[in-house]
């Protein structure tokens, strides 16, 4: 992976939640910002999401939950990613997630979660900066 290759993002919908407007809007916006975006579709298990992330060798996994199941499902996705040696990916997401839950998930490895009203531009810029930071660090190590 070179520092200049396209950023690869998996946008995932874990659980039974059917609200996909946000996930799809963000997915489209990230594509418009030049990223390679894979969208899982609805009703995915944490296991399936991690599997796609590994197969597609993504830099970023972004999850969306508006059903209140984030505290149950976000940690499971993280565990499934770790199991597949994907612990290095940038983890992010959004939905209807109370602030204190965002903080708890941050401590569990979710770099940043975005709430309603966030401009997609901000999300794209943040992802680009984070991935470049990580790629830079990898470059220095090798």
């Amino acid at each position: 992976m070179t520092a200049n290759s396209k950023i690869r993002v998996l946008v995932g919908k874990p659980g039974l939640d059917g609200h996909d407007r946000g996930a799809k809007t963000v997915a489209s916006a990230l594509r418009d910002h030049g990223m390679e975006v894979i969208y899982t579709g609805l009703h995915q298990t944490p296991d399936a999401i991690a599997e796609i992330a590994a197969q597609e060798d993504v830099d970023v996994v972004g999850l969306s939950i508006l059903s209140g199941a984030h505290m149950a499902l976000f940690p499971r996705v993280k565990a499934e990613l770790d199991k597949r040696g994907m612990g290095h990916v940038l983890l992010t997401g959004g939905g209807i997630i109370p602030l204190e839950d965002m903080e708890a998930l941050h401590r569990q490895g979710y770099a940043r979660l975005f709430g309603p009203g966030t401009p997609t531009e901000d999300i794209a810029k943040w992802i680009r900066a984070e991935v470049e930071k990580r790629r830079g660090a990898e470059g220095e190590q090798s």
Binding site: L16, D17, H43, T45, A69, A72
Partner: peptide, 10 residues
């Protein structure tokens, strides 16, 4: 199994 974390939420 699919109901994990979703029971009574929405």
């Amino acid at each position: 199994a699919h109901a994990f974390g979703e029971v009574g939420q929405v």
